[in-house]
């Protein structure tokens, strides 16, 4: 079989394992949906009058872009960093390396897993937002085009950065803390849980270095009313800069992967 066919087979194996891991399904897959439901119920009353109400922004619509952005990061970066570190630690990578499987097939399998899970997660998120909370979804194809490239760049970058980040951990046990703490901080400072505009300026500058802020901003441009872009840092959606930052992180992630990826644990070559 060629690398592509084996990669497809790897995707199916990865999906089987993912779906059988209850913790992953609950914390990674359902987390954004649960948070959206929770926030919509808790903060629902704050959106019944004023600007938000006039522009038709309910609590669910307000939090939807942030949850979509968080979902992209969880299913790509977090899943990858944790699973690759675990597989390196428990010998799964070494086992794969012992077969004639082309290395590319392993990565294709991971990409396949992330694409399927993140698309399914996003579909569920939209479904809940629309059916349970009555959020008006955009009908303009231009907005969905924006969604498509933000989503693809976000997921691709998260995947390669997650694989590269997995090498930071000396063991599978260490990777949990190494991943959860930074991603949680990043979610708080990138406008996932709070309005980004409410953050102090210096924190906005810090967040702007990382991709999550740009993914969240891109998602806001998909789901928020057009005039809300005045509340952004630059007073606009900044699509050009968003694409630039996300591509830069993707390239950096690829370079780091190529330089740091190991099939065996540290101290074994």
């Amino acid at each position: 079989m060629n690398a592509l066919a084996i990669g497809l087979d790897r995707t199916l194996v990865e999906l089987k394992m993912y779906s059988r891991e209850k913790e992953a399904v609950f914390f990674g897959f359902l987390f954004p949906v649960l948070m959206l439901a929770l926030f919509s119920m808790i903060f629902g009353d704050g959106f019944t009058e004023g600007n938000a109400a006039e522009d038709g922004v309910t609590a669910a619509r307000f939090f939807l872009p942030g949850m979509a952005a968080a979902g992209v990061m969880l299913t790509s970066f977090q899943t990858m960093a944790m699973s690759v570190a675990t597989e390196r630690d428990d010998g799964t990578l070494k086992r794969l390396r012992a077969t004639p499987m082309p290395p590319m097939s392993y990565f294709l399998g991971k990409v396949g897993l992330v694409v399927v899970t993140s698309l399914a997660q996003f579909a569920l998120l939209l479904l809940v937002a629309r059916l349970a909370f009555g959020v008006e979804l955009p009908t303009d194809p231009g907005r969905w085009l924006t969604f498509a490239w933000v989503f693809v760049l976000g997921v691709a970058g998260g995947t390669v950065l997650g694989i590269a980040y997995s090498s930071m951990a000396s063991s599978a046990r260490a990777i949990g803390a190494l991943v959860i703490a930074p991603t949680l901080v990043l979610q708080f400072i990138s406008g996932v849980y709070f309005a980004f505009a409410d953050l102090p300026d210096w924190l906005k500058q810090v967040a702007s270095v990382f991709p999550l802020k740009w993914i969240a901003q891109g998602m806001r441009s998909v789901f928020f009313p057009e005039q809300w872009q005045r509340a952004e840092m630059a007073g606009s959606w900044e699509h050009g800069r968003t694409a630039l930052v996300l591509v830069a992180w993707l390239v950096l992630g690829l370079l780091l992967c190529a330089r740091t990826f190991r099939w065996t644990k540290r101290g074994t070559t």
Binding site: V13, K16, M17, R20, E21, D90, G91, T92, R95, A98
Partner: peptide, 13 residues
């Protein structure tokens, strides 16, 4: 063919 030490990475399959 390499017979490696058992790993827990296959548990779910």
């Amino acid at each position: 063919g390499i017979v490696l030490q058992s790993s827990s990475g296959l548990d779910l399959l």
